[in-house]
Amino acid sequence: MRSTSEAPATEPQPVLSLADREAGGSDPTARLEGGSPGAVEVHDLGHSFGELGVIELLELSVSAGEVLGVVGPSGCGKSTLLELVGGLRAPVRGAIEVDGAGAANERLARCSYMPQRDLLLPWLTAIDNAALAPRNRGATRAEARRLAHPLFERFGLAGFERSRPSELSGGMRQRIAFLRTLLAGKPVLLLDEPFASLDAITRAEMQEWLAEALAAESHTAILVTHDVEEALYLSDRVAVLSPRPARLIAELRAPSPRALPRLDAVTSAGFTATRERALAALARGRR
């Protein structure tokens, strides 16, 4: 059961159509094929691994074009939640809908998942790693590279197309992993602690970078992290989970519009107040 619920949970957001979003200033040329954002509905979700209860009666809803941050203590079931939503794992109970589809394989076709580690394939070059999804859909290697190429420019990776993953820095690897996720062109992005493995400075840079990338075109995304600040900075709304088994203990609306310079955003009065509320909710969940 939901114990406390801060910030009157989910006043239903208007589902933005593609046209609304594009009229709202994003760059239509940047849009990727087939990537029009879709909504996610999670109802009455419960999951356990044998005796170990991991998720308990979870209700979540993400509207099209919205970024939902999910924070919770380590080991509470955040990665499991993403795998359940993405159709990589069958839930013990409950219903999940992604862009109107409920079956696991249909959800799998509608989500692209950026795992906790970058998981670049060491035997492929950077650009071939990024272009895996088009390749899997039958594009030739040359076609797939042509699709990925402009994104390398846009994400500050120009010149590194032919590098091996082992020759790249952690931040570059994460960007390529994100690019690979984007190139899948799915309606929903599932991002699992995309920057957890980076040092503090690179991490701040990458957060700013991701905020821009998410603002440049509309994406529905679920962003899992155990960093409250990161969640509030990058998301429209943040769900706070309890320790395992994960329950929803609070939902907070992120204070600032995205793509503000990071330092301005995280030091604003609204931001710090919301962060304190989120941390308080996390602490309450522990008891």
Binding site: E83, G86, L88, L108, A109, C111, S112, Y113, P115, L119, L132, A133, N136, R137, R180, A184, K186, L190
Partner: peptide
């Protein structure tokens, strides 16, 4: 898992 969400058969 990663490659499956990238539409691999």
């Amino acid at each position: 898992k990663m490659i499956r969400t990238l539409d691999a058969s």
